[in-house]
Structures are given as structure tokens and as C-alpha cells.
Simulated scan of single mutants.
Amino acid sequence: METGAAPFTAPAALRGPVIGDIGNWVDRTPVHDASRQGQALQLKQLIESGVCVNLVTVDSITPLHEACLQGHIQCVKLLLDAGAQVDARNIDGSTPLCDASAAGSLECIKVLLDYGAKVNPPLFTASPLHEACMSGNPECVKLLIDVGANLEAHDCHFGTPLHVACAREHLECAKVLLSAGAKVNAAKLHETALHHAAKVKNKDLIEMLVEFGGNVYARDNRGKKPSDYSWPNSPTAKCFEYYEKTPNTLSQLCRLQLRKELGQGAVEKVYKLNIPQRLIEYLAYN
């Protein structure tokens, strides 16, 4: 090299984040843009040119986060093949699997899991299962449960995934959770999923929660029962009035107790019992 010649410096888009390099942290880079917009060919060219696939913004968002949030499966595969960190966390603690679940992208979830994405993050942060329930995709919810998602994962803001599904009125997601053994009376500040169902005035949701053992007498941190959140003489108020006055049948009590003993994965265990098919269907809520 000639004396006095300036050393080669890679363009900003090709360098990783450097402390003090504010622009590189704040702005989305070309690789972020290509990932977010689903421009697979452009992303491939950037990767081949030596771009860092783990560039992060000021809020710790990686290109893989961007691709997963938009459900761009080709971009997700390109990034992972190029060494993208599958469990990278942004400033809110969300991983690419959380973002794929929020997008309701079943294919992205499958690919991330194939690359070793963790389905259960640390406690007190929203999990991929929370995000799937929030987006209202029962197929994503079922897949995450099948690979071991914690049904009782607790987020300090949302509570359990069942709380989220009920607050957002995603009936099918709530049914998948309950069928898999989610605790119907799990509480967040003493507030149960039934309180959420009452607040959104969803009669179908209320009936399903009670059928799975929801406690109509549970009181939240304000001392209120679920029925206290219904309007007088409304369909939900009449529904609660009926349940509060009508005791459970013996068959229902037996079903609830047996499923409680079986715990998570109760449905699979029920089908292995040596009992009549009619009883199996009853215990499995079919």
C-alpha cells in the first residue's frame, strides 16, 4: 500500500453497529428495507455483497424481525441461511418468533422453529403464544402449543395467553388453549379470563369459559365478579344470572375434575383412556 493512502472503509450499510455511530442505529438500513418490503432478490444481492444480516436499529430491531413481522418467508429463509440470530430481541423483548406469531404467519413460525427458535422466552415478557392469541390465528396457537409453548406464560401487562385471547374476543384461540389444558381461572391482579369476557360483552365466550370451569364468583382486585361488568338485563347479564343460580351437574363436575388431574395435554391423554367413545368425546369437549 502506498504511503499516505487512506485505508479502505466499508460503506455504512455493510458495517455492523458501532457505539457512537448514531445514524446507523437510528435508521433502517437497506437490508432492513429489503426485508420489510419482501424484496428477496435485492436482499440476496445485499447478502452476497457482504452485508451484515444482524444489523440493529436504535430499538434493536434486526432485518429478521422486519421480515417476520411482514410474513415474508423467502426473506426469512435468506436471512437465517446467512446467519441471522434466530432469537434476537428488540427493545421490547420480542423475538422474530414473536413477530411471526403476531403476523399470523404459520410458514414463518415453522421455519424459525426449524432453525431452533425458542418458543418460551423468560418470564414476565410477552411470548410467541401471547402474540398468536393477540393476532387471532388458532392454527398458529395450536402449532406453538404442539411444540411446547407454556400455556401459563405470564406477561406483566397482559396476563396469560388466555387473558389475551378473551380480551381480544378470539373465541377459537381461547378454545384451542382451553382444550389443551390452559387454566381457565388463572388470574392477573385477581382478574380472570371470565372478567375479560364480561367486559367485552361476549356471551359465546362467557358460555365457553364457564363450560370449561370458569368461576362466575371470582372477584378481581376491585372486588367485582364478572357479572358486575355486564349491563342490567343484557344477554350477558342474564347469562351470568343463570350460571350463578344453577349449580353444575355431577357429570360436569366430574369432567372438570378429571381434566384438572390430566393437566396440560388433557385431550391427548383422554383419547388413551379405556372408556366408551361417548365419554371420550364428552371429556374432549367435542
Rank of each mutant, 00 (worst) to 15 (best):
H65Q: 09
C68K: 08
L69K: 08
L69C: 11
Q70I: 01
H72S: 11
H72D: 05
Q74G: 00
C75G: 08
C75S: 15
V76T: 11
V76Q: 06
K77Q: 15
K77L: 12
L78T: 07
L79M: 08
L79G: 04
D81F: 03
G83Q: 07
V86F: 01
A88Y: 02
A88T: 06
R89W: 00
N90E: 13
I91C: 10
I91T: 10
D92Y: 13
G93F: 05
C98W: 06
D99H: 10
A100P: 03
A100G: 07
A100T: 04
S101R: 03
A102D: 06
A102Q: 10
A103M: 11
G104L: 07
I109M: 15
K110M: 12
V111S: 00
V111W: 06
L112H: 09
D114F: 00
Y115I: 07
G116F: 05
A117E: 03
K118I: 09
V119N: 13
N120S: 13
P121C: 12
L123Q: 14
F124T: 04
T125F: 08
A126G: 02
A126M: 09
S127W: 05
S127Y: 09
S127R: 12
P128I: 10
H130I: 01
H130S: 01
A132I: 02
A132T: 04
C133E: 03
C133H: 05
M134I: 04
M134E: 09
S135K: 15
S135F: 14
S135P: 00
G136S: 08
P138A: 11
P138V: 06
P138W: 13
E139W: 00
E139R: 14
C140M: 01
V141T: 15
K142E: 15
L144F: 02
D146E: 14
V147F: 05
V147G: 04
V147S: 04
G148D: 04
G148T: 06
A149I: 10
N150E: 10
L151H: 01
E152G: 12
D155H: 14
D155I: 06
F158K: 12
G159L: 01
G159V: 13
G159I: 08
T160R: 15
L162A: 07
V164C: 09
V164K: 13
A165D: 03
C166I: 03
A167L: 14
R168A: 10
H170M: 07
E172K: 12
E172L: 14
C173Y: 02
A174L: 08
A174I: 06
L177G: 02
L177D: 01
L178V: 02
S179V: 13
G181L: 08
A182R: 04
V184E: 00
V184H: 12
A186P: 02
A186F: 10
A187C: 12
A187Y: 01
A187L: 00
